[in-house]
Computed example of a mutant assay.
Amino acid sequence: MTPRLEPVTPRNFDTAVAISVHPAQEHAVSSVMQSLAEAYVHPTGVAWPRLIMEGDRAVGFLMAFLDIDWHGDGSLHRSGLWRLNIAAGEQGRGYGRFAVDRVAAEIRRRGGKELYVTWHPGADGPEEFYLRLGFERNGETSGGQTVGVLSL
């Protein structure tokens, strides 16, 4: 089977919020519930939450940000990957790479040329994953996290 993305709906909400990462990763990524709450409080169209499905199994969750006001003052707009939660038992199977590829495709479809991401620094964070996919540190931090960018 090939993974696919599905919007989060009332029908699959409970499935979405049940996704949890490895306990050692919980400090590095917000829960799906928090992500969906953040999607709700931002203007319509900024947050792009999706379930990552393999057949009838939810294997992860992603949330992209699309044309968000990065500094909150209108001076800079960016798009990228806001959250990536791959279920603890589903990691290492290519779902993270699939998620990044799908977000990149959506940003390209909307005319974007760069995909941004932030990650928790440290040995237990996802830095190596993002660097392997071609992201480069751009020298910025956001909320104590490293900012990376991938040219599309």
Rank of each mutant, 00 (worst) to 15 (best):
A105E: 15
L81C: 02
F61C: 12
E128H: 12
M1E: 06
T118Q: 01
A58W: 08
E128Q: 12
G111H: 09
G125A: 01
D69Q: 07
V41R: 08
N12C: 07
R137I: 15
E26T: 13
R4H: 10
I19K: 02
L81W: 10
I68V: 15
G143T: 02
H120R: 09
N85Q: 05
G72S: 04
I86T: 14
P43G: 07
H71M: 09
G148Q: 05
I68Q: 06
Y116L: 02
T44S: 11
T2K: 12
D14F: 03
V8D: 09
E128T: 14
G92C: 06
Q145T: 10
P7F: 01
P49M: 13
V8Y: 03
D67T: 01
E114V: 15
A37D: 13
E26F: 07
H77A: 03
E38T: 13
G134E: 08
E26S: 14
Q91K: 05
H42W: 12
G144R: 10
G55N: 12
W70N: 07
Q25R: 12
V8C: 04
R97Y: 01
S142E: 15
L133Y: 10
V21S: 13
P49F: 12
D14V: 00
P3D: 13
L51K: 10
P23T: 01
G134S: 09
G134R: 13
F98R: 04
R57W: 08
R4A: 06
A16P: 11
S20P: 01
V32I: 02
Q34D: 15
Q145C: 10
Q145G: 02
W82H: 10
H71R: 11
L115H: 03
E127L: 00
T146W: 04
Q34T: 02
G92L: 05
N12Q: 08
G125W: 07
P49A: 13
L131K: 14
G111W: 10
G80L: 06
F65G: 07
Q34P: 01
S31F: 11
W48G: 11
V46H: 04
T141G: 04
L84M: 12
V149M: 14
S151F: 11
Y116Q: 01
H71P: 01
A99T: 08
D14I: 00
M53T: 06
A58S: 13
R110L: 14
F135W: 03
E106M: 04
L51E: 13
V29W: 03
R50E: 15
R137Y: 06
G74Y: 07
S31E: 13
G134N: 11
E90W: 09
L36W: 04
R102I: 05
A24F: 02
H42I: 09
L76I: 05
G134L: 07
G143H: 07
S75P: 00
V8R: 04
E127D: 07
G96E: 08
L150Q: 06
D124T: 11
S142F: 11
V46A: 03
R11P: 11
I107G: 06
S30F: 05
A58T: 14
P126M: 01
V103T: 07
R78T: 06
Q25M: 12
S79A: 04
P121Y: 06
A24P: 01
H22M: 03
